[in-house]
C-alpha cells in the first residue's frame, strides 16, 4: 500500500538533513546526521506497515492480519539506541575539536591544515 504522505515527509526530512550536512558549522552537520537517521528509522517502520495493531500478544485486535511487523520494530529499536551512541560521540568530538582548534568552521580547519 503506497504511503504518499510519508513519502513526501521523508523526502522533505532527507532534503533538510542533507542541507545541514553540507554546512560549515560542525554542530549543524551533527544535526543533519541526526535528522537523516530519524528519517531512516521512520522509513523502516513505514516499511513494516503502520496500519496494523500493536505486536503484543495479549493486546491483539480482531483478525489475523492486523499486526505491524515486529521484526522491523526490533531493528529500529536497536538503531535508535545506536544512533544515540553516535550522536553522543559526534558531540564530544565537536567539543574536543573546538578545544584543540578554537573553531567549529570546517572551511577554516581545512585551510589551516593545508598551510601547516
Amino acid at each position: 500500500m503506497t504511503e504518499v504522505v510519508l513519502a513526501i515527509v521523508l523526502g522533505a526530512l532527507y532534503a533538510l538533513g542533507t542541507f545541514l550536512v553540507l554546512r560549515r558549522d560542525v554542530v549543524r552537520v551533527v544535526w543533519g546526521v541526526t535528522i537523516i537517521s530519524q528519517a531512516t528509522n521512520v522509513y523502516l517502520v513505514t516499511m513494516g506497515g503502520i496500519h496494523g495493531s500493536i505486536p503484543i500478544v495479549s493486546h491483539g485486535g480482531g483478525g489475523h492480519h492486523a499486526v505491524t511487523d515486529p521484526l522491523v520494530q526490533a531493528l529500529v529499536l536497536t538503531a535508535i539506541v545506536i544512533g544515540f551512541g553516535t550522536t553522543a560521540l559526534a558531540l564530544v568530538l565537536t567539543y574536543r575539536l573546538y578545544q584543540e582548534h578554537g573553531t567549529l568552521d570546517l572551511q577554516e580547519l581545512a585551510t589551516t591544515e593545508e598551510s601547516q
Binding site: T2, E3, L6, A7, L10, G11, T18, F19, T46
Partner: peptide, 19 residues
C-alpha cells in the same frame, strides 16, 4: 539543489517500496 535531489530520490524510493 543537491538536497532536493536527495529528497526526490527518497520520496520516489519510499513510493516504490511501499507499493
Amino acid at each position: 539543489l543537491i538536497a532536493s535531489g536527495v529528497g526526490l530520490t527518497v520520496t520516489i524510493t519510499v513510493l516504490v517500496t511501499t507499493a
